[in-house]
Simulated scan of single mutants.
Amino acid sequence: MKTLLKISGYIDALNTLVGRAVTWLVLIVALISAGNAVMRKVFNLSSNAWLELQWYLFGAIFLLAAGYTFLRNEHVRVDVLSQKLSERTQVYIEIFGVIFFLLPAACLVLWLSIPFFWESYLTHELSSNTEGLIRWPAKLLIPAGFALLILAGLSHLLKCIGFLRGQCGNPMRVSSGKSDEEKLVEDILAQQQAGQGTDTVAGR
C-alpha cells in the first residue's frame, strides 16, 4: 500500500504541475481576447487565427485542468445526503463512484478521442475558416485531458483505500481552508455589517 500511495503522490505532483501551468493560460487568453477586441474596434482588423487560438486555449484550460480540479476536490458535488454520513461511508460511496462512473466514462472518451486526434494529425487537418489554424493540437487536448483525469481518478482511488486502511488522511478533504462559496458569503456579510455600521454613524 505504501508503494501505491507513493505512486499516487507522483500522479498528484504531475497534475499539480500541469494545473499550475494551465492557470497562466487564463492570463494569456485574456490578453489575446483583449488584443483581438482592440484590433477589431480600433483598427478594423481581425484574424481567424487569433480567434481560434483563443478557443484552443479555452479548451486547454478546461481539459488539462480537469485532473488538477479533481485533485483539489473542486468539482461540483451534490452531496446533500452523503455529507450527513460518516467519513468512512462517504469514502465507500466515493470509491463506488470512481470505479463505476468516473473511470469508465473517462476511459471511453479517451478511447474514442485517440483515433479522432490521430486521423486529424495524419491528414494535417486545417480549419475551414480563412487563415485558420491546424486542428490536431486542439483535438490532442481531448485525450491528454482525459488521460490526466483518469490518472487523478486512480490516485484518488488509491488514497481512498489507504484512508480505509488507516494509512493516509481522508482524500475528500484535500482542499485546505474555506471554499469559494463560503468566502463569498463571508464577504457579503462583512459588507452588510460595514453598511449597517455606516448607517448607524450617519444616524447619530
Rank of each mutant, 00 (worst) to 15 (best):
Q191I: 08
V42H: 12
T130R: 07
F96V: 15
V201K: 14
L157P: 04
L51T: 13
G145A: 08
G197V: 04
W118R: 10
Q54W: 01
T198P: 00
L17H: 01
E119S: 06
V201I: 12
S33W: 06
V109W: 05
I114L: 14
P115F: 10
S47G: 04
V201Y: 03
Y92L: 15
L141C: 14
I61W: 06
L140S: 14
Q192V: 15
L126S: 09
R135G: 02
L4C: 03
K6E: 10
I134A: 06
F62L: 13
G35L: 05
E182W: 02
A30F: 11
A144H: 09
E52W: 11
L157V: 05
Q167V: 13
E182T: 14
S86G: 15
F100C: 09
A202G: 02
F117I: 06
L122Q: 14
S86E: 12
A49C: 03
V78H: 03
E186Q: 14
L71R: 13
E131G: 06
E181M: 12
G162N: 06
S46E: 11
H75N: 08
P137S: 10
L108G: 08
A106M: 15
K41N: 14
A194F: 10
S113C: 11
G177E: 11
R72V: 00
I142C: 12
N15G: 02
I11A: 03
T123G: 00
G9K: 09
P137H: 08
S175P: 00
I142L: 15
L184M: 12
I99M: 09
A21D: 01
L27W: 04
S175I: 02
H75F: 07
S47V: 08
T3S: 10
D199H: 04
I7S: 07
A65D: 05
G132Y: 02
E94H: 06
K2S: 12
T3C: 01
L164A: 05
G177H: 07
R20C: 00
L164N: 09
N48G: 10
R173N: 08
L126Q: 08
A138S: 15
G67V: 00
K178F: 07
F146R: 04
L108Q: 03
S155C: 05
G153Q: 04
S113K: 10
K178I: 09
Q54A: 12
L189Y: 08
Q90M: 07
S46Y: 03
G162R: 10
E74V: 04
K183S: 03
L25C: 08
G67T: 04
L103A: 05
E181K: 07
L4H: 04
S47D: 08
M1V: 15
L5W: 01
L25V: 11
N73H: 02
A106R: 03
R40C: 05
D12L: 01
L149R: 01
S46K: 03
L14I: 15
I95N: 09
Q192Y: 10
G59T: 12
G162Q: 09
V29G: 02
Q191W: 07
N73F: 02
S46R: 05
V78W: 03
T3Y: 09
V26K: 02
S179K: 14
G67L: 06
L64T: 00
D187C: 03
Y10T: 06
V80I: 15
V185M: 11
G145C: 10
A138P: 00
T16W: 02
L25T: 05
I95W: 08
W24R: 00
H124V: 04
F43P: 00
K178H: 11
E182R: 06
N48Q: 13
L81E: 15
M172R: 14
I99G: 01
G162S: 09
L81G: 00
F58L: 13
